[in-house]
Amino acid sequence: MIRRTLLAASLAAFTFASNASAADQPLRIGYVFAMANAPALIADKEGFYKQEGLNVDLKALSDGPVIQQALAAGELDVAYVGTPPVYQWYSRGLKSTILAKVNYGQAAVIVDNKSPIHDLAGLNGKKLAGVKKGSGMDVLLRGYVLKEAAGLNPDSDVDIIDMPAGNMNAALERGIVDAAFTWEPFVSQALLRGNSRVLFDVNQALPQYPWYVVIALPKTLQDRPDDVVKLLRAHRKAVDFLNQHPEESNTIIAEAFKLEAVQSADGKTISPEQIVAQARSRLGWSADLQPSDLQFIQRLMNDSTQLGFMNTHLDAKDLVDTSYLDKASR
């Protein structure tokens, strides 16, 4: 009887120690290092994670594929990433759940001020700077901007040249390309220099379309549901801070992304904070996933299938669970 009691006590102590050890482990969060993902760094710098009693290991990563590798290797629990990679990974077996929205807007097609191109149809036969084929932004470019809005065949009517977004403005200025499909802060930097203009603003055509989202792995949701709710509370606080304190948050963003001042065509110096302020005309932040957001995600999924980037039909509703965000809002 004594041996059984001692054994039970030992097992209970071991279980308690294991649970305590798991609770002490930081929640590992990865985010694509992009201005649109500002809520992740705001939550960290303003102490919102700590306010929720959440220990985090926050990692800024270069792009979606790097985050995919980290998730697949079990090196991340949660990620801030673009919607298209999420459903593309899902179709290939890397399951995750979309929990909340991060931002809306950000992308535009720009041309040189002196360009004879004045509408999307004018891109026919032209060179357009874009990103890697099959990536999230490429799906938006080919499926919506070129096929739907411009009525062009992205494979034959336009010469899409893959290059880093940071090189697009220079390529446009040097005449290497006729137009560029880019995003913030690159759009605002080009406009504030005074040598480019917006040909097509995606956020005007599709007001407040969602892009980056917060996702979690099934294991994270199973093992750490309370921490996920805490994370989403901190996320909501960060979004509110961005919207309620624009000047202060613009400074944080400018410093975090190491934005440099630009010179306008008339010789004026445009500060990094002004670049962020300009970007807000095409970019904003929101945590809530609306029915219209799910419709947009479904549109992207359908475009990915039609473009041959995905061979599985998915329903956006199967990838989204807003119950954790609902708990975080109480």
Rank of each mutant, 00 (worst) to 15 (best):
L41T: 14
T97D: 11
D162K: 01
R330S: 14
Q189L: 06
R92A: 13
L99Y: 09
G130V: 05
Q204E: 13
F48E: 04
W285R: 04
D318L: 11
N124I: 02
S323T: 15
V111R: 02
R282Q: 05
A60G: 13
F181R: 00
D315I: 08
G284F: 03
V131L: 02
V198T: 14
G82K: 02
I29N: 13
P225M: 11
E148A: 11
P225S: 14
L231N: 09
G122R: 07
G47K: 06
P225D: 11
A79M: 10
R197S: 12
F257K: 04
R197L: 12
I253L: 02
Y80C: 07
R282P: 00
S304V: 08
A279G: 15
L191T: 00
A79E: 07
S135W: 06
P154T: 03
L232S: 12
I215R: 09
A254H: 04
V202N: 01
F309T: 07
R4V: 13
L217P: 04
E255F: 00
E248I: 08
A13F: 11
L242A: 12
R3V: 10
N311C: 08
L232C: 14
G194Y: 06
R233D: 02
V320I: 15
Y49V: 03
G105L: 10
V198N: 09
G267V: 06
A73N: 04
A100C: 11
L191K: 01
A108M: 00
A36F: 03
Y90T: 13
R233C: 04
N167W: 00
A165G: 12
R193Y: 06
P26D: 07
L314E: 13
L120I: 09
